[in-house]
Design a protein around this nucleic acid. Sequence first.
DNA 1: CAAATATTGTTGCTTTATGTTGAAAATAAT
DNA 2: ATTATTTTCAACATAAAGCAACAATATTTG
Lengths: 256, 256
Amino acid sequence: MSKYETAIREAVTLRGSVTVAELADALDVSGQTVRRIIKPMVDRGEVRKVHGAIVSARSEMDPPFLARMHEQQKEKAAIAAMVAQLIDDDGIVAIDTGSTSAYVAQALRVRRNLTVVTNSAFVASTLSMIEGNRVFMAGSRLRDHDGAAFDRAAFDVIAGFKVDYAILSASEVHPERGFLVQEQCEKDIAGAMMEIASCSVMAVDGAKFRDTGRRPLLSLPRMLDGSIIVTEATPDSGFNDLLKPYRVEIAAAQAG
Amino acid sequence: MSKYETAIREAVTLRGSVTVAELADALDVSGQTVRRIIKPMVDRGEVRKVHGAIVSARSEMDPPFLARMHEQQKEKAAIAAMVAQLIDDDGIVAIDTGSTSAYVAQALRVRRNLTVVTNSAFVASTLSMIEGNRVFMAGSRLRDHDGAAFDRAAFDVIAGFKVDYAILSASEVHPERGFLVQEQCEKDIAGAMMEIASCSVMAVDGAKFRDTGRRPLLSLPRMLDGSIIVTEATPDSGFNDLLKPYRVEIAAAQAG
DNA sequence: CAAATATTGTTGCTTTATGTTGAAAATAAT
DNA sequence: ATTATTTTCAACATAAAGCAACAATATTTG
């Protein structure tokens, strides 16, 4: 077991895939060494190796939800890593549904002793596997393509908490209308999470600032001043007014 | 116990890993001394030692649950496939926690329009991704290594259903004591699921018939006559009495 | 105070990890 | 197809870390 193993594991879980050269650079060792360290990890099945890169061992799943997991993959991984940086060990967070939130959940696996309340079964499942976390699944009736709950019980569970951060996502960002989601129930859950949070964290990839979806969308309630927007590209100046009350964090394409 | 121990512990937890040379420098002692001090700490399991460094003992990520996902992998997959064969499209099932159940959930992705009630976030997440399924997550407070709920809400949700099959698993099978699980709460959930089911399906791999766990185990309530046992190897004749009231299905080891 | 005990540093040697080189394999480009 | 580029792998040389035994120093105990 090498001292670099945990660093490699983290990089892989966080980013899904990472090249040998990147790791060599990040760890300040030669590529050959990286390969040597990785070999036993592959044998143990902790990571998978393809030509040119090492990728997370987690395989399974193809459904529509996970399809979206692959759009803007690198951007979302970078954003998720930045969000995970904002959260401390022992933190208390609420996390909503959405593919970006799924990435955030993956990234948060490096944190310890988290208390998490979420209405997404995927997020709940991911984070409850981590020893020491306290995870609460809000709601029981799950929606059939993303495994999220929006029933009465979900609101009741959420309302019983007080969290440091509400980690939210949106389908689109509009200069005047703000952060938009597709359905009323998503808006309601996001609102409920914002209400119990000292601070909201809105995680949206750059594409959300450009997408001009034709479908009707609903605006989320306004976030508290001082809330944090995490994205991977500096938004167009047209968004200045909208973003002024907030702290905008730009996630770097990321080194190790 | 050396006066340097707490300093070392702090350095390790703080930084995740630290080299012997760094510690020697910081504590102003020789490297040999550092090794000598660390030796008993390693024996006690407080820290871990690798060539070149001391690393935190907190095994970041080898959740016992996912570890078990890989034991008896082929057997469990065969059993799961057989269970999935018993369930029809449009079926209504309850599924409990456990690595075998996780495989069953995977296998059940080939079925359509299932109604599922489970106390496992992993099972819920897996099956809710399938278009057309109705999945209910029973419970909100999730246990931290397998993401299963055993709280009051879990029982309430389960009690509100009536299902065709309760798909259960056990830690061990004993000729006289029957099907055994490790904890009271697991027994209770299994019992609750059996009560709402017309028929129970017990999925246990052959190893469960042999394992002679020394730890104290609890017997599950007796299943209805006609319930189904699915395993991959014909049980020893010593189990004849126990299994007589049931239908035993032997899953053929499958390709892939 | 002296003897016993524990702690630390030093030395020489063994084991392990790492970087470099060059050839083979795989992938991409033509 | 063929060539070019990148990635991987094996082998060797070297540096670094670990280890055991001994010597020197401090600490406790009778």
